[in-house]
């Protein structure tokens, strides 16, 4: 009996400890105090919305102006490479990841008891307010999110044009990768009043477009990706003489950049820049 009694006493102590633990954790779940983001796009949403001191680290990619719309801001935070060990040592109470973040790292962090929230890549402009709203809720910053959503929607309404007979544009980056219907880039093109040639050649989503098809489609505008240092065959394709001959007749050579990549209010800058290009092309 005495054994039984001791056990039950121990159980009661355990239950009390658990209850205390839960109570203590309650305020923390209301608004996380140490947030680590390991994905380029959650980095930017978090930097836009987080309270002073709430965001502890962002991914190293956010410091790269070819990919990130906020490289200068990102350099104010310690950068991480998204590996479970380094993230764990930052003692986060919330980790923000993308659905394409290395699954092994995400699974390891969850095993270690850290809450990980995943964001899918944005596929449309309509994802932007939804993501702002979700991130605002996660960080306990609903009010700021509401303000940014209103600003974004007003900005988009002011910029948006009908794409029916605008210039024909092609997105063409390393490896001949193009993006068609159902992608954020395609939405950016149409909002700026441009027609994406991916639709003409029957491409939806993202994938390689053979150079032959690009050349025969003869678009009014070829938007290429920003170049990296070092050499790669993937980018050498952008120097192909056939592409050079096609581009020789085109007056404008825009490049995509950080504003294009993520579903954040920064896409408005990409739309505004493209609209200006479209006007320059239409001008006689």
């Amino acid at each position: 009996m005495s054994v039984f009694g001791r056990t039950s006493r121990r159980m009661r102590a355990l239950a009390a400890a658990l209850a205390f633990g839960l109570c203590a954790a309650q305020p923390a779940t209301a608004a996380p105090q140490r947030v680590v983001s390991v994905n380029l796009c959650t980095d930017q949403l978090a930097m836009l919305l987080a309270d002073e001191g709430q965001l502890v680290s962002v991914s190293f990619l956010s410091g790269d102006p070819r990919l990130s719309a906020m490289p200068a801001r990102a350099r104010d935070y310690p950068a991480n490479r998204g590996q479970a060990e380094e993230v764990f040592l930052m003692r986060p109470d919330l980790v923000l990841a993308g659905t394409y973040t290395a699954q092994a790292s995400v699974a390891m962090l969850r095993r270690l008891g850290i809450e990980v929230v995943e964001f899918a890549p944005a596929r449309a402009l309509s994802d932007v307010p939804a993501y702002l709203e979700r991130m605002g809720r996660l960080l306990g910053r609903e009010e700021k999110a509401g303000r940014l959503i209103a600003e974004f929607e007003a900005g988009l309404a002011a910029l948006r044009r009908a794409p029916e007979d605008g210039p024909r544009a092609a997105l063409y980056s390393a490896n001949g990768y193009t993006t068609g219907q159902g992608t954020l880039s395609d939405d950016i093109l149409s909002a700026a009043g441009l027609r994406n040639i991916a639709a003409e050649v029957g491409r939806a989503g993202g994938g390689p477009l053979p150079l032959e098809l690009l050349v025969t489609a003869a678009p009014d505008l070829v938007i290429t990706g920003a170049r990296y240092p070092g050499a790669s065959r993937a980018e050498a394709l952008l120097d192909h003489p056939a592409l050079a001959a096609l581009m020789a007749d085109l007056p404008l050579r825009p490049e995509t950049g950080g504003d294009w990549v993520c579903g954040t209010p920064h896409v408005l800058k990409a739309i505004a820049a493209l609209s200006a290009l479209g006007d320059a092309l239409e001008a006689p």
Binding site: Y228, G230, A231, S232
Partner: peptide, 10 residues
Amino acid sequence: LSPNPYAAAE
């Protein structure tokens, strides 16, 4: 080791 992110895929 290349600074180009596409190089390793090649």
